[in-house]
C-alpha cells in the first residue's frame, strides 16, 4: 500500500511492473491515469494548478485506501497524486490495484478514484483565455462517490 503526493511526474508502466512483481498470487492489475484536458464545458484550458492540504491529504488518502482494502481482497494498491502547475496532457493521478482476480482489481480501482475526487483535499484552478478560476465541484463526481456508500 503506497501513497505519494508529489509535484514530480510518474512512470505508470514502471509502477505497474513493480506492483506486479510483488507476489505471484496477483492475477490482475488494474490502473487509472488521470490527465489534464485542454477544455472543459467548451472553454479552453491552458493550464491548471492543483493545491492541497499537506498532512490531511495523506491521512484522507490512507483512509480511502484502507476502506478499499476492507471491501476487496487486494494484494497491493498505489495512489500517486500530483500537485502544482500542470498543462494539458500532463498526468495528474495514478491509481493501481492488484488482486488475485480481476473483479476486485477493477472495482477497487474505480472506487479509489471516485472517492479521492470528492474526499481528498485537493483543489484545482484552471487558466483559461478569460482568466484563472477555481474549479467548482461537479454533481456527477458526488454521484459517482455516493454510489459506493453502503
Amino acid at each position: 500500500m503506497t501513497i505519494k503526493v508529489q509535484t514530480e511526474n510518474f512512470d505508470a508502466g514502471a509502477e505497474i511492473a513493480e506492483i506486479s512483481a510483488k507476489s505471484t498470487n496477483i492475477g490482475g492489475v488494474c490502473s487509472f491515469v488521470g490527465l489534464v484536458r485542454d477544455s472543459d464545458d467548451n472553454k479552453s484550458i491552458t493550464a491548471m494548478t492543483l493545491e492541497h492540504y499537506p498532512g490531511m491529504t495523506e491521512k484522507q488518502l490512507a483512509k480511502i485506501e484502507a476502506e478499499a482494502r476492507a471491501r476487496w481482497p487486494l494484494d497491493d494498491s498505489l495512489i500517486i497524486h500530483r500537485y502544482g502547475r500542470l498543462e494539458p496532457g500532463d498526468q495528474i493521478v495514478l491509481v493501481v490495484t492488484a488482486s488475485a482476480h480481476r473483479k476486485a482489481a477493477f472495482e477497487a480501482c474505480e472506487f479509489l478514484i471516485d472517492w479521492l475526487k470528492t474526499k481528498a483535499p485537493f483543489w484545482k484552478s484552471e487558466e483559461t483565455p478569460d482568466g484563472t478560476k477555481w474549479v467548482d465541484a461537479k454533481a456527477a463526481d458526488d454521484a459517482a462517490a455516493d454510489k459506493w456508500e453502503e
Partner: peptide, 10 residues
C-alpha cells in the same frame, strides 16, 4: 482549523 471549498482532486 482549515477552511476550504468542496474538493476537486483526481
Amino acid at each position: 482549523v482549515a477552511f476550504f471549498p468542496p474538493m476537486t482532486g483526481g
